[in-house]
Design a protein around this nucleic acid. Structure first.
Lengths: 140, 140, 140, 140
DNA sequence: GTGGTCTAGACCACC
DNA sequence: GTGGTCTAGACCACG
C-alpha cells in the first residue's frame, strides 16, 4: 500500500492520508481485512512524523473504517460490502455534498454535466452490482 | 439576503458565509446582478467580525463569483447562465468530488444510492433548462 | 473551574480531565454555555502539556459535550437538559455498566447495596425533577 | 466455560477475559469452586497468547476472585455468598461508578432512567436472596 | 513488534 | 488571543 502525499499542500497531511485510504476502500484496493502499513512504518517511509500518521489512522478508526490492534496493526474494518452507513454519516454527507454540488452549479456546470462527472468518478471506483442496466439512467 | 450562521460550528464562519452564498447562486436565489449586504451590515447583523465577512467576500471574488466595488457594493458576478467554468476550477472540483464520493462508497452507500442523492440535491436547486439531451462523456 | 489531577495515577491525565469535566456537567457545576479554561491556560495551570489537554477536550468534543471555537474557547455544549442521549451511547454505556455492576456483585455487594450506592452517587449530583416521590422506590 | 472474545476490540484481550469471568461469577454461572479452563487450554482454544491469559488470571487472583494452584488449576475463590467486599475495593468501585454514572447523566439520561437500567442489569444476573429489607444509607 | 500516552516547542488559521 | 497542525523524541502497555 503506497500512499502518495503532497507535503506542501494546504490540505493537512493527516487528511491526505485519510482521504487516500478512503479512496482505496472505495475502489476495492483495500477490502475488509486488508492491512495498512504500521503507523511507524508509514511515517518513516513518507518522511513524516509518527503523530501525523497516528492522527490519520485514529480518524479512520473513529469513522469505523479501520481497526487498530497491537497484534494485527492497522486493518480495514469496513467497505461497501459491510452494509448501509450510519444515518448520522448520511446526514453529514448530504450537507457536504449539497455544498459541493452548489459550487459546481454556481460556476456554470449544468445539472447533466455534474451528474455525468459524478457517475464517471463512481464508475472509476468499480461497480457494486450489475452495471449493465443502470437503474438510474434518468441522468437527464 | 439572510445568511444563517452557526457560530459554534467547527466550520469557519467565513467558510459558512461563502457556502451559503454559493448555494444561493446555485438555487437561483442570487442571480447575476443581485446584491449582497455590505460587509459592515452583514458583520453587524450577524454579530461577527468585519474581517470575517471581508474574508468570505474576498474568497468569492477570487473565485469570480462576486464583484466588489465601492460604488455598487457586493454584486453577484456569475451563475449557471454565465457559461462553462474555468478548467482549473473543474480539475479542483473533480478532486474534491472524488474524495467525497469515495467517502460515501467506503461507508456503504451503493453506486445507485449516491447518484440518487446527488440528483435529489441538484433538483432541489431547481432546473437549468431542458436537460433532455445530456452531453455525456464530457468528463475529460 | 478547577480541575484536580493526579499526575502519578495510572489513569491517563487526559482521561482524568475528561472525567472531571463530565462529573462537572452531571452535577450542574458546568451547565450548557459554561466556559472551561482555554487549552493553554489549563495546561499551564496544571503543569501539564498542551497536547494532553487538547486530547481531553477533543474527546469531549467528539462526545458532543464540548464546543471548541477560536472565538469563544471551550464551551459546554450538552447537559441533562439537552434531551435524551444517542442510542449508540446508551448501548455502549450499558455494556460498561454491566461489567461494573458484575464486579460489585462478584465481590460480595448485594443487589440492594449496589442500587443504594448508585442512588446515593446520583443524588450527590443533584436532582433533575421532583425527588420527593421517587418513582423507582423499588430498590428492594 | 466458553469465553467469547472480540480480538479486534479496543478493549485489551486480558481485560475481556477478566470481565467475562467476573460476569460469570456475578450471574452464578461460576460459583465458588468452579473451575476455569487451564491457562494453556484457554490460550489454545481462543488462539491467543499464553501470557495474555496468564495476565487475566493473575489479575483475578490479585482481586481475590481466583485461586491458582498447580494441583487444581484455576478455581473460583469468591462470589456473592462469600461475605462483604474489602473496603479498599468498595472505595475504588465507588470512584469508578461515580464516573460512569456522571457520564450517563451528562449525556441526558435521567436519574430514574439510570437507576432503572442498573436494576435491569442487576436483575439479569439473578437474585441473591430476599431483598425485601434494603439496608439503605450504607454508602459511607 | 505493535499502538498509546506524554512531553516540548514550532508555526499556522481564525477571529 | 484562541484552537489546529506538525515535528521530535521519550516511555509504557499489549501481545
Amino acid at each position: 500500500m503506497i500512499i502518495p502525499l503532497v507535503l506542501t499542500s494546504e490540505i493537512p497531511i493527516y487528511q491526505q492520508i485519510h482521504d487516500r485510504v478512503v479512496e482505496g476502500i472505495a475502489s476495492g484496493t483495500l477490502p475488509v481485512g486488508a492491512s495498512l502499513p504500521s503507523i511507524r512504518a508509514l511515517a518513516a517511509d513518507s518522511g513524516i512524523n509518527f503523530h501525523t500518521v497516528n492522527k490519520a489512522y485514529d480518524l479512520l478508526r473513529q469513522e469505523g473504517l479501520l481497526h487498530l490492534t497491537r497484534k494485527h496493526g492497522a486493518v480495514i474494518a469496513r467497505d461497501h460490502t459491510s452494509g448501509p452507513p450510519h444515518q448520522d454519516f448520511v446526514a453529514d454527507w448530504d450537507t457536504r455534498a449539497r455544498t459541493l454540488l452548489a459550487e459546481a452549479r454556481a460556476h456554470g456546470l449544468s445539472h447533466g454535466d455534474i451528474l455525468d462527472r459524478c457517475q464517471a468518478l463512481l464508475t472509476a471506483f468499480g461497480v457494486d452490482g450489475p452495471p449493465s442496466a443502470p437503474a438510474s439512467g434518468s441522468l437527464a
